[in-house]
Design a protein around this nucleic acid. Sequence first.
DNA 1: TATCAGGGTCGTT
DNA 2: AACGACCCTGAT
Length: 315
Amino acid sequence: MDKRVVNGNNMKSIFKHFTEGCESMVSNLIVEQVECFDIGQILESGQVFRFEQINENSYILIAKQKRIKLVQQPGSNNLMIHHTTVGEFDEIWKAYFDLDTDYKGISKTLSDKDAYMKAAIEFGYGVRILKQDPWEMLISFIISQNKAIPHIKQCIANITERYGDEIGYDHDTDKTYYTFPTPEQLLRATEEELRECKVGFRAPYIVDACKKVTSGEVDLNELYILSASEAKEKLMQIKGVGPKVSDCILLFAYSKMDLFPTDVWIKRVIEGMYFEGKEISLKAIQTFAREYYGDLAGYAQQYLFFYGRENNLYK
DNA sequence: TATCAGGGTCGTT
DNA sequence: AACGACCCTGAT
């Protein structure tokens, strides 16, 4: 058994590297001492759509052109990642899972705000904000509008099966998985074909996104260096991308952490917690969040979304 | 069987 | 600024 210990990031994580059986040449990895990290909470917090739960403690995740299996025992600070390597961990997963960010400090600051936030963070202590692919987030959140999460996942799966490249077969789920199609690959899809993927009235929006991204009219790489409001303006040039969808893209792919995507769930939670259940405008919620949570608004949103939706609060 | 809402946005008043 | 329409699906 090949065993290796690597150390050294802000979290002082230790990685053990091992190979298991002879099923494949790709090895597995144990990440030790992960803080504020619960893989189930992270995946179920509504920011990512390409995963499946295998059992209570295991998930398959498709991201970064790869398929990994994640296992974490309840309350454990150890995370096992199957089908990956130490090299891949350093290059890909460390950033993807935002492991260099001090969630202990962030959750402490937010918990001290008020009892509601404290309760939300106690409930979702292991929530993190992933750093995902901009193009995939753009298409995924265009699809998300006026849809339930299981349906969103289904549409995205349909699109990847039809236009992505095969990644491989998974024994646990008995399914074959595909990459998320590139803008060039998805550009080949007609509106009618997209409707066959069940995206409905969003099909022309996806066509428009493909055109504007492949032509360079909207440069997704440029958005990293733009301010949140400038980037938002760019994204909203694409049909079907409004304020909520662009906020999600900028939070979940570009780490613009001061944004506060406001959907029906968050709206209800904020109204219930801070406005005595009275209905207030989206604009008022944005203003409140920006002032109250400051540059931690994005994190607050994620804790509140998970808390509110998992507990069906204020419905 | 019918109605409704779901991580909103667009086009029309 | 307000309002209905919109594909499709699962829950009542």
